[in-house]
Nucleic acid binder design. Structure first.
Lengths: 194, 194
DNA sequence: AGGTGCATGTAACAGGTTACATGATTAA
DNA sequence: TTAATCATGTAACCTGTTACATGCACCT
């Protein structure tokens, strides 16, 4: 009732629109910039490809949420985007919306672990593969940490969370590997105090 | 070189093929069974919809990896699927393959947190929303724990890992909420000892 | 008589990746 | 001159979700 008469100046932001719109205030503003920035920062919890970014920038411009102007560097074409006032309020509207934030995960390592009773002699190898993947990921995360400590707070927070989560997972894998490396592993493991 | 002459009796399994094939040995064997089982167990790290499952079962049958036979219950049509020998070896081949297991995450909560410098007064609300989502998730995970403790080991392991990860995240959110609720939050937080 | 659960399926759509095409600029 | 980086874009493809349609069985 009370929300009904709120001005619906804009439709909800699509998934890709959210990243693109959110990244523009960071000062990264060409499509190319956005892509490289995503790869260095949000990739671990939200990826995006050129095939999404360039068409999305156009759609956002059509909707009046961003405005692009040509700023060639030398003879090389280059379009720099800025948030419009409507874009800013759309971004804030999304950030302030109280709906449960979506979460989607597709983890092949966990899926293999889930099915590992079909090939029990490989369980240890599966755990090790997960751990190695996480260890690599940790190296990448730590590599961007120095940048982020100069950057905005939100970026620092997600990075710290990502590092913590990854470290926890590595420790869990190590502990579980130990459980299964001796005696071939119990078929009914105790509640575990990882 | 040594892997080149290995018999390529089957093409690689598609993403959906992996879940479906892996779940059949659990004794869940109709399309409907698979869907409800996925929703109760792997959903947290690997979801699947009817729109994927039914077509995939047919494709797998065409490839000879599963075989279905009609087993109507009363007058109600019902097709029960089993793994064929080829299906079993395809499943094991995938489980044993040493490639880095894929990982894809799309977490709107973290994305909002990353962008939260655009609306700092909402940072706490964003953290709270993430925590509430995780707390709900934890309730669901704990609800399936008793089942899993009777079930196969792989299912137990992924469940324990999921619970641990979720608990860690909740704790991290709580700690971070505390940091930001007093004094409006430091703009350069200390390395944090969560 | 009605609701819930079992069971199968598809069409339309939304979302996303990959590969390709193009070409300028800069540093070695 | 060559490789890397900057820069833009699209077409074809693959994947996955949502909404819909259908109908039996079982319990109250």
């Amino acid at each position: 009732m009370s929300a009904d008469d709120a001005p619906k100046s804009h439709a909800a932001l699509s998934a890709t629109a959210r990243v693109v719109l959110g990244l523009i205030p960071f000062g990264r503003r060409t499509g190319y910039d956005i892509k490289t920035f995503v790869d260095r920062t949000t990739r671990h919890f939200w990826a995006a490809s050129y095939g999404q970014i360039y068409p999305e920038l156009k759609k956002l411009e059509d909707r009046g949420l961003v405005s692009g102007r040509p700023e060639p560097s030398g003879g090389r074409a280059r379009t720099v985007y800025e948030l419009t006032r409507e874009g800013e309020s759309a971004l804030k509207g999304w950030l302030a919306s109280g709906e449960e934030p979506s979460y989607e995960l597709r983890d092949e390592g966990m899926l293999k672990l889930f099915f590992s009773d079909s090939l029990p002699e490989h369980r240890l190898a599966i755990l090790r593969a997960i751990r190695e993947r996480e260890e690599q990921s940790l190296v990448h995360l730590r590599a961007i940490e120095p940048h982020a400590s100069q950057g905005p707070t939100g970026a620092q927070l997600t990075l710290q969370m990502g590092i913590g989560l990854t470290e926890w997972t590595i420790e869990w894998c190590r502990a579980t590997e130990r459980r299964f490396s001796k005696a071939g592993g119990p078929s009914t493991p105790q509640p575990s105090k990882v």
